[in-house]
Design a protein around this nucleic acid. Structure first.
Length: 362
DNA sequence: GTCCCGCAGC
DNA sequence: GCTGCGGGAC
């Protein structure tokens, strides 16, 4: 697929860089540093969460884990607890594993190339490129959601991005749009790549907005083919629509008078991997089978509710049972299952619907 | 309903 | 290599 990247490239990067200097963001706590640890931590958090929310978590993580070695040495539960409320806990687990990898494989220093960075858990092509551009000045393209929007608009890129071949073409275009290679040899000496990378992120976050692109104040409007056509907001083009299936889960809800709840740690694979959760069953019968007959007889069905994931509607059916000392030993309530006090559970990594259920319930 | 980004399974 | 998953915010 052909794009106009080559034609636009000479004017695009200089205009974006100049704009970043004058109008871009420059005071966020993870800016003005070339420390890969700080840049990496912010990039992972920003993948899923808005800047204002990340600020608090970022500060708390840095305070508790000033260096990657401290994060690597922590327990997974502590990392998940500090992450609590951010959601997307697989990213927190990858964060922890990545820190351990950096220590074990690279002596506690992040590797200095996008190619090597990408071998670390939780760091994909775009995140690797962002770290390498910010910290090492590497001439390599990022392509996150903001940049996809900016580039497809500037290029008036019509192809359906839900098709991997078209996304690959856009990656190629992103690489072509990079600032011209520095004349000298030391690419890390100046801040061209950092400015350019930050500029794309800033433009996507503050000007080239999803619904209302602010073309009148855009530094690259005179180059932008989408704006010229009068309909920049229709990019990026995505045609595939997902179909969502339904699944029902039964949750065993046991709560003592003092507020403690019975939780267990989920297996490392599958839904809610590694999180603390109420015991989960695939069917009402399975839940019944796990309880003594008298406990089942006294159980009270709570109102069902729906929790929506990208690909699935989870129909959740809480079942309240009397708090009993002998829950222990009942599969699958054995092993990791335990009473968790009302002081402790809010700080654990809990699936959002379970957290909501526990919060609403008292 | 849409989007995010990396991963795992095919 | 490609597709679909995962959990939550907007």
């Amino acid at each position: 697929m052909h794009t106009h990247a080559a034609a636009l490239a000479p004017a695009f990067a200089p205009a974006l860089i100049a704009w970043q200097r004058s109008h871009g963001r420059s005071t966020l706590p993870w800016q003005n540093t070339r420390d890969p640890y700080r840049v990496w931590l912010s990039e992972i958090m920003l993948q899923q969460t808005q800047v204002v929310t990340v600020l608090g978590y970022y500060a708390r993580f840095l305070e508790r884990f000033p260096a990657v070695s401290a994060l690597a040495a922590a327990s997974e539960d502590e990392v998940l607890g500090l992450w609590s409320g951010l959601g997307y806990y697989s990213r927190a687990r990858n964060l922890h594993r990545c820190a351990q990898d950096v220590v074990a494989r690279f002596g506690g220093r992040f590797p200095a190339s996008a190619q090597e960075l990408q071998t670390l858990p939780g760091i994909g092509r775009s995140t690797a490129a962002a770290i390498a551009a910010f910290c090492f000045g590497e001439r390599v393209a990022i392509l996150d959601g903001n940049v996809k929007r900016v580039l497809t608009r500037v290029l008036a890129y019509e192809a359906d991005l839900s098709r991997s071949a078209n996304e690959k073409t856009l990656w190629d275009a992103a690489q072509q749009m990079l600032p011209a290679p520095a004349a000298g040899e030391a690419s890390g000496a100046d801040d061209t790549m950092a400015r350019y990378t930050q500029g794309q992120m800033d433009l996507g976050a503050t000007v080239c907005l999803p619904r209302q692109p602010q073309c009148l104040i855009c530094p690259v409007q005179r180059l932008c083919r989408g704006s010229a056509a009068g309909n920049p907001e229709r990019y990026p083009v995505r045609e595939r629509r997902l179909r969502r299936s339904a699944q029902s889960l039964w949750l065993l809800l046991a709560r003592r008078d003092d507020g403690a709840v019975w939780l267990h740690k989920r297996p490392a694979k599958g839904i809610w991997a590694g999180l603390h959760s109420l015991p989960v069953f695939d069917s009402e019968e399975a839940l019944q089978a796990a309880l003594p007959p008298q406990a089942w007889a006294a159980a009270v069905m709570q109102p069902a509710f729906v929790h929506v994931l990208t690909h699935k509607d989870l129909h959740l059916h809480p079942v309240r049972v009397a708090a009993r000392a002998d829950l222990q030993g009942l599969p699958p309530l054995d092993g990791s299952g335990r009473w968790v006090s009302a002081q402790e559970w809010p700080g654990l990594g809990l699936p959002a619907p379970v957290r909501r259920l526990l919060e609403d319930e008292h």
